Simulated assay, not measured.
Amino acid sequence: MTEAGAVRCELPPRLDRAEQLGQFDGQRVRLVGTYLSVPSLKRMPRPGRPPEYVDLGEVVIQIDGSASDYDPAAGDMPARIGLGSEARSSEEIVRLNDRRVGVEGRIVLCPEAASTHRCAVPRPGPVLQGPTGLRLEE
């Protein structure tokens, strides 16, 4: 408690560069970066035809730096953090795609794979769990 009985509320750390992520793994943060929709391939294209993509509501926040700053196996990939595990609405995607945003949540750099299949499954990428307070930062 502070003066006059006011409750002191600490803001989560603001992260906007890849090299900051490692020290806050598992903690609540405010992630600031570019909101990007991740389209999925609709089906394998026929030879000579362009691929068709569909928007399934998957979104990432791209921040400055390389993914190798927190994952040595990532190589030269841009630093991208998934925005929760739920599909985002098409209205939100249209409104925010390619724009600078801020969002709070718990950063998890190495989430557990949720697959029970015996075949090879891609390792899940970093994710911001329980995203809240999504807003433009421009």
Rank of each mutant, 00 (worst) to 15 (best):
E112S: 14
N97A: 04
E58C: 00
Q23C: 01
R95N: 03
C119K: 06
V127E: 05
R46S: 12
Y70N: 00
G84P: 02
G65W: 01
P45E: 01
A74I: 01
V101F: 09
D71H: 11
G48W: 01
T116I: 06
V60W: 12
R123T: 09
S40N: 12
L15S: 07
E91F: 09
E104W: 01
L83F: 14
E52N: 09
T34F: 15
R8K: 09
S68W: 01
R28K: 05
E104K: 05
L56H: 08
D76N: 15
A113C: 12
A4Y: 14
R95H: 02
C119G: 01
I63E: 04
L36C: 09
A113L: 10
L15P: 03
S90M: 12
T34A: 12
L128A: 08
R118E: 01
A114K: 05
I93E: 09
S89R: 15
E104S: 05
R30S: 11
A113F: 01
R30G: 06
G26R: 07
G105L: 11
L31D: 02
V101H: 10
A18E: 09
P78C: 13
P51L: 00
M44R: 10
G57M: 11
L21S: 10
R135W: 10
R123P: 02
V29H: 02
A67P: 03
L128T: 08
L36M: 14
G82W: 14
P50E: 14
I63N: 05
V103S: 04
V7S: 11
R80Q: 14
